[in-house]
Design a binder for these strands. Structure first.
Lengths: 346, 346
DNA sequence: GTGAAAGCGCTAACAA
DNA sequence: TTGTTAGCGCTTTCAC
């Protein structure tokens, strides 16, 4: 059933039917009723492609995900964030188009998305400190919004970020208050903007107490379980091992716990583990996770919000570039010892 | 740059340019060269919407994900699978469109996808035993492929599944061979087809040795860390607790480990934990995971394969409904005790 | 081997 | 308030 057929059934012109369906004011109410009714009865839905072609809007938003190095897509953060964004899109009638790209081919993909008219805007994930994507997208004239920030970018752009710096400052202070002095930082890859900001927060806290950071205690790589495990094994084997771990993701913290276990250390007694992660659904199911003391934020909600911001930008491309900084919340769990912990002898 | 502009630059008709670009044979080679060259130079990409409208093909494939109850999208399996499928789509020039739906609204969404011509086919995730979606999609005449199977469905359809039954039979046999007699099964939600098949395999193995299954030892729910933890806490508190756990997902197994830890039990010594999960990227990063003994399969590869099958079906809707059953691989890690473990006294 | 023209299903001037 | 008409950018007969 298409517009032509529907209008013939109704004995009206396509124009009138179209106007009735799209809520234009110049249609008589009775006519509109008739049209809407028939549309429902015949299960009519307008062909998106035809509509797009006529309006120039694709009513779709692209998420471009690099595959090879970062494994971004399988990152639970990405999943939760995307789920949130998707809900917003659905409410506004947008489709979500996900493209995966081998690293390096990104420019080509954005260019194509634009040229082919596949999407009306794009959401950018996991920006690096000197991320080049934004300039490319900006130059293409494609509306975009960023989950995170790009430190090296002076131009205004639409972003939403969690306050990583203050979160890690707070977390580190928390551990310092407990009496810890050797705190390991198990962080994401150095080029990632979030990792840089987190390290800054950690260093801020140490500096404020005049504690010299020990480079040996600061590791960074892609945040997998394996990385957490290996980091902890390595750090716990030091002559002066850390008494606390500040870990940039829950899944890596789980790896840290595995290492602790293998070393015969009990969390909350022999070792403190504190994590920053978003509030991920695959770990909980409505329940609490008191595994670690944690800095939490809702990444799903972040997805919803940023999608709203992007849609607003698409509607008004010359409007202001909105930004939003979310503060993380501290949740104290039982794995962080309440008292200064003895340094384990080598 | 669109076709008209490009053809004007070349002094050719749109027709010829179109033919040259799309590899039609009746174009002189020299002309084709010129056209392809110009297309590259001017960064020409055909407008997808216009092309779709003209051809009737959308060159997009839909993944419909229920949101409310199952949290499917944030399931790491889904993420890895989708990443794999997406790679195949990219190779074949397809876009991937993801829609989230509140449970129950699925029929409406499929109907819309079809009526609006948004996609050429759909991939169905996480089927339940009596899943109604397939009949709906079938009736709509939308090509589809299923990740998993639907036990209650006699009609042929295109699916790819891992052999859950034999995997769990093998896993249970493995634990039985070690001398375990009280083996807990921590499984996915009962309505899920995969959970049913896994339980069957588990029961098969017990029955073959004339061991009566203990209903107390069989739990099922959505596979989160929290569920694994709670299950294990509950089971370990039994008068006769299990000596081994067979867990349906790695993340839940991590919860089981947490519970074991809290109970002062060491994996591989006091307790065996065996898991079935796909080979998930967020846990590893190229490395091994010696956490549990596991039945493994590559879900990313599964995504790639099933996407191929679907694309083939779209190209030839009246062709055979291909199916593919993958066998899981047993990987023995150090957490499964090599000898019968003493039953912990209550 | 190349081009003219119709049409995919819809929207949006402009007319009535 | 409704209808006529001309596109949106591409493919695809059909004619040359």
């Amino acid at each position: 059933m298409n517009l032509k057929e529907l209008s013939e059934k109704l004995g009206l012109s396509q124009t009138t039917v179209s106007r009735a369906l799209n809520g234009y004011p110049e249609v008589r109410e009775a006519t509109r009723e008739r049209v809407l009714d028939a549309a429902r009865r015949y299960n009519y839905s307008p062909n998106t492609r035809a509509k797009s072609l006529a309006t120039g809007q694709s009513m779709a938003i692209g998420h471009v995900v690099p595959t090879s190095t970062t494994h971004e897509m399988v990152n639970p953060i990405f999943a939760d964030f995307t789920a949130g964004a998707s809900q917003t899109y659905a409410r506004h009638g947008y489709e979500m188009v996900i493209s995966t790209v081998p690293d390096g081919d990104e420019e080509k993909v954005y260019r194509k998305l634009k040229a082919r008219g596949t999407v009306d805007g794009v959401l950018v994930h996991a920006p690096a400190m000197d991320d080049q994507r934004l300039s490319i997208i900006e130059d293409l004239g494609l509306p975009y919004a960023v989950h995170g920030r790009v430190s090296d970018r002076p131009e205004p752009y639409c972003w939403l970020d969690v306050n990583n710096r203050s979160a890690f400052r707070t977390a580190t202070d928390f551990l310092l208050d407990l009496g810890h002095r050797r705190i390991a930082l198990v962080n994401g890859r150095e080029q990632m903007d979030f990792a840089y900001r987190r390290r800054s927060g950690y260093l801020d806290a140490l500096e404020a107490r005049r504690i010299a950071p020990d480079p040996q205690l600061m590791l960074s790589d892609e945040m997998t379980e394996t990385f957490g495990y290996r980091s902890a094994m390595q750090l716990l084997a030091l002559p002066r091992p850390p008494t606390a771990f500040l870990v940039s993701s829950m899944i890596s913290a789980i790896g840290v716990r595995r290492a602790a276990e293998e070393n015969g250390l009990r969390l909350g007694t022999d070792l403190s583990v504190m994590t920053f992660d978003d509030d991920l659904s695959y770990l909980r199911n409505g329940g609490d996770i008191p595994i670690f003391t944690a800095m939490h934020s809702s990444v799903r909600e972040a997805g919803r919000l940023l999608a709203e911001m992007l849609i607003e930008l698409i509607a008004n491309p010359d409007g202001p570039r909105r930004t939003l900084l979310l503060e993380a919340e501290l949740k104290v769990g039982r794995s962080t010892g309440p008292v200064p912990l003895a340094v384990r002898s080598a």
